[in-house]
């Protein structure tokens, strides 16, 4: 296995964290940061495609957008925004703690971050289940599970064959033609489709982010970091902040305007 062992000439005076291909820890850190940023560029462009679709269809169906946004749970999303912004702060503080070599504070901040991330996912999951419960005919997720209160609601906001946008919220009364109703429905359906795609993709990134944070926590518990080497905390933090930035745009675009 000559490929992994170090050659004698390349054993450095630095710590074990310096990989064989680098000369200095600074070089390793800068390469990691630049590489992470290049990856973040990729992520931004990935979500860019969804935002592109959002712009195109919002342009086409402004009324449908307004009516649909009113049916999303804005108070919960606001709570979620606060949760994510706080988690961004805790991540920034975690990086700061790692920089100062304060292991205790680093672990606290990482734990807080993961807790906040989980909270976000739970709230998001509740929002989703609300929509699915309505499709199943229940008033809220709890009555959906217990099986009571069925057939209360006449809406289904999950895109698909069963999609049904409630009449009283739409501009379409009985006076309009059937063709018109169909096209209005399609605008609403596109809104919810994009909503589920965008927030779903965001949630997947959140889950990956939680995995990254757990890995960093384990590394911190094993004393892998020092004030001179905390690159994983830093680039993991970059990833977490990116998730936050995506939400900063998703929140107003879907819930507010």
């Amino acid at each position: 296995m000559a490929t992994i062992t170090h050659e004698e000439a390349h054993v450095h005076a630095h710590g074990p964290e310096l990989q064989h291909q680098f000369e200095t820890p600074e070089q390793q850190k800068e390469a990691a940061t630049l590489g992470m940023w290049a990856f973040l560029v990729t992520e931004i462009m990935l979500f860019g495609g969804i935002f592109m679709a959002y712009i195109v269809y919002r342009w086409a169906f402004p009324e449908a957008w307004e009516e649909s946004a009113a049916l999303l749970n804005t108070p919960l999303a606001t709570v979620n925004t606060v949760v994510l912004l706080v988690s961004s702060l805790t991540v920034a503080l975690a990086v700061n703690a790692a920089e100062e070599g304060n292991k205790r504070r680093l672990l606290t901040m990482l734990a807080l971050t993961m807790l906040l991330g989980l909270t976000f996912l739970v709230i998001k999951g509740y929002e989703y289940s609300e929509k699915f419960a309505h499709c199943a005919g229940a008033k809220d997720p709890i009555s959906w599970i217990t099986g009571s209160d069925l057939h209360e609601s006449h809406e289904c906001l999950v895109p698909g064959r069963g999609f049904l946008f409630p009449e009283e919220h739409g501009a379409t009364g009985g006076s309009h033609g059937a063709a018109h109703t169909a096209s209005m429905q399609s605008g609403h359906q596109l809104f919810f489709l994009l909503y589920f795609c965008a927030t779903g993709l965001h949630a997947i990134h959140m889950i990956i982010g939680l995995g990254v944070m757990s890995a960093i926590t384990i590394m911190a518990l094993r004393d892998r970091f020092s004030p001179t080497y905390f690159t994983p905390v830093e680039i993991g933090g970059l990833y977490w902040h990116l998730i936050d930035i995506i939400w900063v745009f998703l929140f107003p675009l879907f819930y507010l305007v």
């Binding site: 290049a38 560029v41 860019g48 495609g49 895109p159 999609f163």
Partner: peptide, 22 residues
Amino acid sequence: ILATPVLGIALLLVIVERVWGV
């Protein structure tokens, strides 16, 4: 790095459309 993710999302949406029927 700039272009490939856009293809990714375009194709992902095709999969969503086929699988989900939307």
